[in-house]
């Protein structure tokens, strides 16, 4: 994995937009922090939307990942819905120690993806977080696998705290995106230079990238 070099012009083959969704407190922000800076912290609730950028080498390709983190409380869905647009991958997170965060994925979050994702081939990934609290677990791994099969998504269980499977979550998702020609075309550095842009730019090849 390459560290993020902030000042110099980033070099990458592909730029992908990933999105983290799921109920409040399942650990979306913590998972993201665990992935981007290898640290674990008890984080405050996300208000609205946040994002982080990470440069990685996966599958022999230099990638720039723009990962969008969303607020989980129900009423914030009116604010977060527009961020599904143009995402190549969506990670649905639940907490293995709280059943309702799992049931809400089929009741709410999977429907949100269908409603707002503009990308038919968008790769979905189911992630059960907090496996470090094994004694408090109420959602079995089998249930996760069954859900993933039914909704056609990838599946992993992880712990943002112990960092078990954290990198794998993002790696598996990205590998799958790399296997999908339509997504690959969207993320190609020839068309995408800016993490905020939803659609390919026309002719501004000289843009200096993002902040």
């Amino acid at each position: 994995m390459l560290p993020d070099s902030s000042s110099s012009q980033p070099e990458f083959d592909y730029l992908f937009k990933l999105l983290l969704i799921g109920d409040s407190g399942v650990g979306k922000s913590t998972l993201l922090l665990s992935f981007t800076s290898n640290t674990f912290e008890d984080l405050s609730p996300t208000i609205g939307v946040d994002f982080k950028v990470k440069h990685v080498n996966i599958g022999g390709k230099k990638l720039k990942l723009a990962i969008w983190d969303t607020a989980g409380q129900e009423r914030f869905r009116t604010l977060t819905s527009s961020y599904y647009r143009g995402a190549q991958g969506v990670i649905m997170v639940y907490d293995v120690t709280r059943r309702e965060t799992f049931t809400n994925l089929s009741d709410i979050w999977a429907k949100e993806i269908d409603l707002y994702s503009t990308n038919q081939d968008c790769i979905k990934m189911l992630v059960g977080n907090k496996v470090d609290k094994e004694s408090e677990r109420v959602v079995t791994k089998k249930e996760g696998i069954d859900f993933a099969r039914e909704y056609g998504c990838l599946f992993l269980e992880c712990s943002a705290k112990t960092r078990v499977n954290v990198e794998q979550c993002f790696e598996e998702l990205v590998l799958k995106i790399l296997e999908t020609p339509s997504l690959l075309a969207e993320g190609s550095s020839g068309v995408r230079k800016n993490i905020f842009k939803q659609k390919p730019p026309e002719s501004d090849a000289a843009t200096s990238g993002c902040c």
Partner: peptide, 13 residues
């Protein structure tokens, strides 16, 4: 605007 950066991304909070 040129960056397509929506200010609500920071201002909502």
């Amino acid at each position: 605007e040129a960056l397509e950066f929506d200010v609500s991304l920071v201002a909502t909070e």
